[in-house]
Design a protein around this nucleic acid. Structure first.
Lengths: 219, 219
DNA sequence: AGTCGTCTGCGACTTTTGTCTCAGACCGAT
DNA sequence: ATCGGTCTGAGACAAAAGTCGCAGACGACT
């Protein structure tokens, strides 16, 4: 059984007291996913809201030819499927577990009634969703204005916790909106310039300042 | 003075009764803008929420080199600056009047207190914002997967109320995320194929079905 | 009617990105 | 140790997008 304490890692619920949260917890259940497993599929409509407890979840949309564009990488504490839950339309993106993932699931109508009782929760969600919009705007700017090289540099900086980004070139390509070969080329060039070192399944960032310069150079 | 009736065109306020709406109306004021005038600037933070009463408003973000990427074209009934209002961060986009525009402005904190009193309003806003997210995801898919030709075809279809799109090639280029020359080329090709006719400041759509075929051809 | 600014047409050229193809390297499992 | 799958390096080529430069056309305004 889920206890209210489990939900405290989600700032969204800060506005609710323990009693209320306990009632909510009773309506939720926990699901586990294996790496690579799809959690929600583009086009389907589940009517449920997911909260990431452990692991990494990738939100991406798929083209007809199979290419994928990553919209966001979610960490514990984040939620997804909100959009579909609030406008009732099919989900615009696919969510996939990129590691062992543990999620908590809440029916959308439970959340709606909860908002009616606790308007603060609605405000928190609006705050949350505003962040999502912001992230998408940044992505649009990236795709519209910047070269693969620049996008890659950004991605590496953002992705490199503790000096190295744990991702294959294929994965980096999808996150930056291009294909493996192009990402590989750009990475090799960055490596030649001494900014990164390439290893199998990871990229070690040697010179963060240099990468930041790459991003700015286009100006 | 603003009357509550003026606010009824915004579905957002459906949940409020006339008395409440009257109180809200007292807090709002109306502003007019000339074509081309900037309403909110990227990076600034106004703490106000705008509702479009009349005219067309363009939301766009600007690159360092001056190129613009249009995020959305707003019609009467739409709102903007919500994101900045709810997370307190600077506005990610510039809003510009593309015609004579009349807006109603509401302080963000008034809206917040209003949501606390009427949670339904929060739900309505969440619904609204979900639509915004959806629009951005579509834009990202467009930029990532489709060619200029295809994006242009989409834009023309979506834009052509009553058979013709009233926009310069420059404007169409910005909406489709490219430059004037490229958009011009693609348009001339579409014209040669008999799908559209080019005129000064407008594009007449001759064959909507043909345009839809253009969008699908890439598959 | 003339002038100015905006809008358009269009060609030559460069750069960037994407496609195709193959070979070698690495890793885990048998 | 060998095998198969995944990951990577790399080159040739094609296509798309962007840049530059310029000329003409149209409209608004004086």
């Amino acid at each position: 059984m889920l206890a209210s304490a489990h939900l405290r890692i989600f700032r969204l619920f800060d506005a609710l007291n323990d009693a209320t949260l306990g009632v909510v917890a009773a309506r939720m259940h926990r699901i586990h996913y294996r790496p690579g497993e799809q959690i929600v599929h583009e086009g389907e409509q589940t009517g449920e809201i997911f909260f990431v407890e452990h692991g990494r979840v990738r939100l991406a949309c798929t083209a007809i030819d199979g290419r994928e564009q990553v919209l966001a990488m979610l960490r514990p504490g984040a939620s997804f499927n909100l959009i579909s839950a609030f406008d009732g339309q099919p989900n615009p993106a696919t969510a996939r577990a990129m590691s062992v993932v543990q999620c908590i699931v809440l029916p959308a109508d439970t959340l709606r009634t909860l908002i009616r009782q606790h308007p603060e929760l609605g405000l928190a969600l609006l705050h949350d969703m505003a962040g999502q919009v912001r992230g998408l705007v940044v992505l649009v700017e990236d795709l519209a204005f910047r070269s693969v090289r620049e996008r890659l540099a950004r991605q590496l900086l953002q992705d490199a916790d503790g000096g190295c980004a744990e991702a294959t070139q294929q994965e980096l390509a999808e996150r930056t909106g291009t294909v493996r070969e192009i990402a590989g080329r750009a990475l090799r060039q960055l490596a030649q310039e001494g900014l990164v070192r390439l290893e199998r399944g990871r990229v070690v960032v040697l010179d963060p300042a240099g990468l930041r310069a790459v991003i700015a150079e286009h100006a």
